[in-house]
């Protein structure tokens, strides 16, 4: 049977699960409030003070928003299945574990895409006020979404590790923090050897998101995010398998 059909069935169910509880709406509202506040604040994003037609003051905060928001979206994916015991139903259905993993990941990723899409008033605003380079903005959105996917895939791992959503949230927050800090200048400045700085920061989402923000779509950056996602989902499948093997 067509594997995408199974994946889509899982994805639909997971998306339904988000919207049948208040979590989805609370998340979206918080995300929009935060991004509005950080972008326009005279202390933080300085949208107006910059006097330039771009969404740079919006995208620059994304690595930090996602640090808290994406683990909150991903924490329930497997932890809840394990807690309630539905994992036993799901993994004895005639689908592969991969299809379940990808289906769940896609659902959360699409959900994050929706949240991101709902920031479109910002785009309208900046287009009314000036003449921004919409290509750069599009590239920023794509990069932001890919980065969210990388965080989310890490959250999948931590969610598969435990049956507690809170534990999953905290571990994935710490893991994602490392993904940021590895490329955060105050941290990289402490390292003396340039080759080591390059090596460490090449593991950071900051380094790879940077190009997208400037409107440079570098294949290496795309490969980075895609491989973080692929590797993390693979790790998730290994964890699920070892957990079942006892």
């Amino acid at each position: 049977m067509n594997p995408w059909r199974n994946i889509w069935t899982i994805t639909k169910r997971e998306l339904g699960a988000y919207f049948s509880s208040p979590i989805a709406y609370v998340f979206i509202v918080i995300f929009l409030l935060l991004s509005g506040f950080f972008t326009f604040s005279a202390y933080l994003g300085k949208f107006f003070e910059r006097r330039e037609a771009s969404l740079g003051s919006f995208f620059i905060w994304h690595p930090w928003f996602y640090l808290f928001l994406v683990p909150a979206v991903g924490m329930r994916l497997w932890a809840e299945e394990r807690r309630v015991g539905t994992i036993e139903l799901l993994l004895t259905m005639p689908i592969t574990a991969w299809q379940a993993i990808v289906g769940k990941f896609l659902a959360s990723w699409l959900f994050l895409a929706l949240a991101l899409f709902l920031t479109f008033p910002l785009w309208i605003t900046v287009n009314i006020l000036g003449h921004p380079d919409n290509g750069v903005i599009l590239s920023g959105y794509i990069g932001s979404w890919m980065m969210a996917g990388a965080y989310l895939a890490v959250s999948c791992i931590t969610s598969a590790l435990t049956r507690s959503q809170v534990v999953s949230f905290i571990i994935s927050l710490i893991a994602c923090l490392f993904l940021i800090l590895a490329g955060y200048p105050p941290v990289t400045n402490m390292i003396d050897w340039p080759w080591l700085v390059n090596l460490v920061s090449s593991f950071s989402v900051m380094t790879h998101f940077d190009g997208f923000q400037r409107g440079v779509l570098d294949v290496r950056d795309v490969i980075f995010f895609v491989s973080v996602i692929g590797f993390s989902l693979f790790t998730t499948s290994v964890i699920l398998r070892t957990h079942r093997a006892g």
């Binding site: 169910r13 699960a17 049948s20 309630v84 015991g85 539905t86 036993e88 139903l89 004895t92």
Partner: peptide, 15 residues
């Protein structure tokens, strides 16, 4: 070919 009712009859509570 199998229908399975696991112990404690788990089901997706949000559906």
């Amino acid at each position: 070919l199998i229908g399975y009712l696991p112990e404690n009859a788990p089901a997706y509570t949000d559906m």
